[in-house]
Simulated assay, not measured.
Amino acid sequence: MSQLVYWLDLAGVIVFALSGVVLACRKRMDPVGMLVLAAVTGIGGGTLRDLVLGVRPVFWVDDPTYLWVIVATVALSLVGFHYIHRLSRGFMPVADAFGLAIFTALGSHKALALGYTGEVATLMGMMTGVAGGMIRDVLARRVPMVLREEIYATAAFAGGVAYVVLYSLGAPTVLTIGASLAATLGLRLAAIYWGLALPVFAWVTIPTRPAEEGRAAAQKAKERVRMIQRQRKRR
């Protein structure tokens, strides 16, 4: 079972690292930028989780295989650079959804294995799943998905709850991981496919008069140009 968890963890690192590479390509970064985005996405969430839980050393320090997996992912991406540019816009959200599901399940698994409560395990699953993507988006100057109205952290929360509930019922680890993956991935992919989003609440109404005045001024300028053109034609 420990081997299953280990290989799933490496798979999650690959998927998240690849999403970082894709974003780096779209932001026209150099190979160093690609490596940085791939690394923070692939191991950022797990690093924060281990630091919060007091795990020493952090998982990738204890096992540098994670670092080599990230380097290999970036190297292969550089070789297939032209193919990455041909990927559709929908690839990155889907790849990110798979990484989110894997890391949420494994984050909850690790917290419970260390003897923490279900509440802590759920939060650690969310942190493992969303933190790496948050750091990636901030470095790429994007608003992180977790801060937008998209169903992202909610999907991670559902996956963490699913894992904790089945674990408390004594279900086998394979079943708990599978249920957590299904809950997170199903909810996230459904949100992507059907465009589902959480409601947005605004306590302050931002005045739109400056924008309206700008549009009115632009319209007047266009009308004036047309009038001048008509006058020239008459001459």
Rank of each mutant, 00 (worst) to 15 (best):
K222T: 00
G159T: 10
T128L: 05
D137H: 02
W203C: 02
A153E: 02
A190P: 06
I192D: 14
S168I: 04
V143Y: 01
A97P: 11
T154D: 05
T122V: 15
R226I: 01
G45C: 06
A75Y: 05
D9A: 03
A75M: 07
S77V: 01
R209A: 08
L78P: 03
V36K: 12
Y152S: 08
T176S: 14
R136W: 03
T104N: 12
V61T: 00
A17Y: 00
G54C: 12
T41A: 14
M124R: 04
R136L: 02
V165I: 15
G178S: 11
T173A: 12
L139G: 02
L196M: 12
G44W: 05
V164D: 13
M1P: 12
R188V: 13
V200W: 08
M124V: 08
T184I: 08
T184L: 09
V120L: 13
G133F: 05
A121D: 12
A216K: 13
R224Y: 06
C25A: 04
A11P: 05
K220Y: 07
A191H: 12
G42P: 00
T122M: 13
V22L: 15
V94C: 14
F157H: 00
L181S: 11
M1D: 13
I206D: 12
A72E: 08
M134R: 02
R148L: 10
L139I: 10
A190V: 12
G90W: 13
L181I: 11
T117G: 14
W194Q: 11
D62W: 08
A95I: 14
E223R: 10
V174M: 14
G99V: 06
G80C: 00
D96T: 13
S19T: 14
P210D: 07
K220A: 14
L35D: 09
V40Y: 03
V130H: 04
V22G: 02
Y193E: 15
W68P: 03
G129M: 09
V79F: 00
G80D: 00
G129P: 10
V15W: 06
G33L: 04
M145L: 15
G160L: 12
G214I: 08
V200E: 13
G133C: 02
A191P: 13
I228P: 01
V138R: 03
I43T: 06
Y167M: 13
T154H: 01
H109M: 06
T41P: 01
V5P: 05
G99D: 05
R89Q: 11
V174S: 15
G42V: 00
I151P: 10
R49A: 10
L147F: 15
L123F: 10
K220L: 12
R136Q: 02
A158Q: 10
A39W: 00
M127R: 01
T208E: 15
G129E: 12
F91Y: 15
V21I: 10
L166D: 09
G90R: 08
S19P: 03
T176C: 15
P210L: 09
R26V: 05
G178L: 08
G107Q: 06
I70F: 09
P207I: 11
